[in-house]
Design a protein around this nucleic acid. Structure first.
Lengths: 204, 204
DNA sequence: AAAATAAATGAACATCATGTTGATTATCCA
DNA sequence: TGGATAATCAACATGATGTTCATTTATTTT
């Protein structure tokens, strides 16, 4: 591949800058970070930063894109068969488990980027990804006339809900395993928020 | 009250600055805005800005706080009776309708602040508000042992989902009425995402 | 191992936004 | 109307930005 063609120093420098970005985002949020902060933390010359990135926004963008691409690679493993054959309440969707494992590997950056001092645009990108995945694999072959609500609002509901659960998982220290998280998500989505409270049986 | 004590000029200046903030957030996002941008757009002296705000973050904070307080005033109208007596599928919760009407009145700022170039911290504040409202009025008297998922994840799910629907409504031009939106939200939350697709009847 | 290539450094520079100050003008309110 | 105060204007120091160029250092290639 073309990876071999990249100079070791470039890889090293970029890695140090990206690590510095993650650390500083955790400490003070993205807005407050200066290029000087980044290069001091990474212990490189300030000019070197500009050899690799236009500015801090370019850096953030590239880091986000890397995460997004990692997720997209995972979605290739997902196929329609998986999604429809599982009931998802006793055995979690394998794909969702992989997803949470991937988030765990990249948790430092993701936690910072999805936190209150993070980047709203990154949230939006992830929601978009969730939307497409859900839509292409589950919702696309539904009849619009069967729907009790407009499909675009349903999609907005589901994708935001899932992202919100991921955010809460990251913020609360990732104590549940990826497997447990997949089960939790499946239960709420399949049974509905009210049903999982246990209220359902009393009223029906 | 103490409102009378405020000089007209202050009210005028603050209003112009806040309007400028909303416009510029729509145009280029909060991060890209400078104090100079704000004062040029508002057609006031740059120094005047600093008579009222510490910096642009202080300005944003104050605008957000105003919205939050407006919502909190609405929640005072909400009581337990309302929340539990309605089934919410034919008649919407009055409180939720008021809420969407309030969002409509402040849609310019809200759309900008909740959009991809907006402020992730504001999203978090709103989610926190939704969490508390839901929890205090509905979820607090549930038995933890009845729950099929941990309650904190359920709350994260619901609050993010609701915020996501609000965001989608704002971004898609607010074509549905507040009443319709309240019904849509109630249906998904009460019946569950899968049930509202119409798939439910075929499988149960 | 030596030569060629390319990345990183360090210093300097112009530019721009920031936040503050003091003097002056315009507006408000009683 | 007169006193109070908000807004303006000009000026200033500070610090971040993005760029340049000569130099040093690390790497790849031959």
């Amino acid at each position: 591949m073309s990876e071999r063609l990249v100079d070791r120093r470039i890889i090293r420098t970029k890695r140090m800058i990206r690590d510095a970005l993650t650390m500083l985002m955790e400490e003070k949020g993205f807005e407050a970070i200066t290029v000087r902060d980044l290069t001091e933390r990474a212990d490189i010359n300030r000019g070197t930063f500009y050899l690799h990135y236009e500015d801090k926004y370019d850096l953030l963008e590239q880091c986000e894109e890397e995460i997004i691409n990692g997720i997209k690679k995972l979605t290739l493993k997902l196929n329609l068969k998986d999604a429809l054959s599982f009931d998802g309440q006793k055995e979690p969707f394998p794909f969702i488990v992989y997803l949470f494992e991937y988030f765990h590997e990249n948790s430092s950056f993701m936690k910072a980027a999805l936190g209150p001092n993070g980047d709203a645009a990154f949230q939006e990108k992830l929601k978009e990804l969730i939307k497409n995945t859900f839509y292409q694999n589950i919702l696309s072959n539904l009849q619009q006339e069967d729907m009790l609500v407009p499909i675009d609002f349903l999609i907005a509901y589901i994708s935001s809900a899932n992202l919100g659960v991921i955010q809460h998982w990251l913020e609360s220290g990732m104590e549940k395993s990826p497997r447990e998280m997949a089960l939790i998500l499946a239960r709420i989505t399949l049974l509905g928020p009210r049903h999982v409270t246990g209220l359902y049986s009393k009223e029906k």
